[in-house]
Write a protein that binds this DNA or RNA. Structure first.
Lengths: 344, 344
DNA sequence: CTGTTAGCGCGTTCAA
DNA sequence: TTGAACGCGCTAACAG
């Protein structure tokens, strides 16, 4: 085995050519499939490639006109959340089927970070963008700032930005979840949600209200707490709910974090000697592991983030590879959700 | 607002130069910080940049000698697992502090996919690689195949490959976890683990054996099941353990998936009328959410994947930016773990 | 302070 | 079937 020509540097097509005793063009042709290159020459070239550990420089490659980077930029709000991880997996999966790859970034929900990330993606010549918006100002997402790079939003929309988006059936899921509790005889149903400014937060609350109204149950504002972003504050909010003179007999939780927090508080009360029968049952928008083992009944409004990712990719891909990417109206896909008692 | 010069194409530095009435070089200098450019000219340039929505092409940029791509390739086995998601976050965090970005790939534990991913990363001129190995053959990771691109392994090592690695204190954690059960008076302790070929699997089993031996408890092979890769098979394995004539009174689970599976089976038995006091308590290597709410006592051998990621990045960064990257022996960092009863 | 030249690695075009 | 020339977007080095 012979080492690389210049240690500390990736070999180039020229070095391969030199070693094989041919021109760089012949190497290029061989690597492109070998059309119009004599088999024995191809042999020599491929051996030189192996010996030098040569690899095409994709950056240089995508520089040529007509070539594309094969990169799709994906920006999510929280890489540590399996929900978004699986979402990204779905995008990757669908995109890989077309020979493209994703480049993944984490915004942490910070608009400045998002802006930076999008700029970076564009600088790397991505062919398209998939974004879970963090909710701040969105000038950097306006079509003229994106050039001809198509954008698909996921989970949330941005008002005033007319682009493709995939959403969950937030309203319907919350509506059905709340209705299930009402039908089970509950009339005092607590609501735990994230900040009202968030897109999904507003929609899920809407579903909750809709169900109450339909059954003629008046809204009790004391039962509604929707400023919790993490499990700890959700836990605290649940404590306040359960400390009311007339505490709720059931809780609708608008997302995973609030559900976990609620359960922490419920667990605390059980350890303090409370009776499980006196504690509220739970409907959770978003599934979570071991939901079926909880000390109170849990029903889950479930959906597959991976499927959401695949759908987002599908929208994006349909905008690629034809000249009229910007033509055609923005499309909105709303994914259905399932409602099921937790057992696993 | 004037549209882009050639719709359907990102503007280039030339177009900006043309519009600003200067040479491309002046644009380049302005964007590089503006040294040696008259302020009023800079003004004109920046305005042209804004108007055209121009952005430097990072790919072309990194083509120049001496320039680097600023990219670190990170390949993990499962993006949908929050453990690895947080690991990647840790890498990103540490790497961002040096102005670099990560490009993230998912191997799904498939060696072929890993090989492909590494090739792609190298083709995109990454400066370094962080990899959670999937365990197959590792020719593609040999130094001569990587050129001068440094590699750091995480979670697992590959025997015969002498590169930097960050590991957990698998042996110590399993040892201490098992010891805690022994000290609580248990003598029949079940072991649930992943496939014995997996690096961590072997190490954690070693810790389990070590603890038994130290207390003079003979190993009962019937209590050891270590072929489960997912929660479902772990659940089935737990059933077999609990169906033994002399079932274990406690279980040591070598990872998250096995813990979840064990708890599913425990939940099933409770729903079938079993008494919680007759079911085994659990020590779990790897934390999981709501561990404190389980119907049987759970103790967790815990560690912060994010910290692991940061540490991996630290190793990698120390190999960057100096000529003697390959010099110096491979370093091995073993991260400590905590042992604590689950409460949250 | 500003512009020209040259070349990074690659592949299309054209000529041999 | 093969190779030479050229240019993709950008910037270091060198004029001016």
């Amino acid at each position: 085995m012979v080492g690389v020509a210049h240690p500390g540097k990736q070999p180039t097509i020229k070095e391969v050519a030199l070693r094989a005793g041919v021109s760089p063009m012949t190497v290029s042709r061989t690597l492109a499939g070998g059309a119009n290159v004599r088999p024995e020459i191809q042999e020599r070239v491929l051996e030189a490639v192996r010996e030098l550990g040569y690899r095409r420089n994709e950056n240089a490659r995508s520089l040529r006109p007509g070539q594309t980077s094969g990169l799709i930029g994906v920006a999510i709000t929280n890489l540590g959340n399996p929900y978004y991880g699986n979402f990204a997996l779905g995008v990757e999966e669908a995109v890989a089927a077309t020979g493209r790859r994703i480049i993944l970034g984490n915004t942490g929900g910070d608009p400045a970070r998002e802006r930076q990330l999008v700029a970076d993606f564009l600088g790397r010549q991505v062919e398209g963008l998939v974004l879970v918006p963090s909710g701040g100002p969105s000038d950097h997402l306006r079509p003229e700032r994106l050039g001809d790079v198509p954008l698909v939003l996921a989970s949330r929309r941005i008002y005033g930005l007319d682009v493709d988006a995939v959403l969950l059936d937030d309203v319907g899921g919350a509506y059905r979840g709340t209705l299930a509790l009402l039908d089970a005889g509950h009339t005092r149903i607590g609501y735990l949600g994230n900040v009202s400014s968030a897109f999904t937060g507003g929609r899920r609350y809407e579903g909750y209200l809709h169900a109450l109204e339909e059954r003629g149950i008046p809204l009790d504002p004391a039962l509604v707490l929707r400023e919790q972003q993490d499990a700890d504050s959700a836990s605290e909010a649940t404590r306040r709910l359960l400390d009311l003179d007339e505490p709720p007999t059931a809780i609708f939780s608008a997302n995973n974090r609030n559900s976990i927090g609620a359960l922490h508080e419920i667990g605390r009360r059980l350890r303090a000697g409370a009776d499980a029968a006196d504690l509220p049952e739970l409907v959770s928008f978003d599934d979570f592991e071991l939901a079926g083992l909880m000390p109170v009944p849990v029903t889950v409004v479930d959906h597959d983030p991976r499927e959401l990712g695949r759908e987002a990719a599908k929208l994006l891909l349909s905008r690629l590879g034809n000249g009229d990417r910007h033509r055609g109206p923005a499309r909105l896909v709303e994914m259905p959700v399932r409602l099921a008692p937790a057992v696993g």
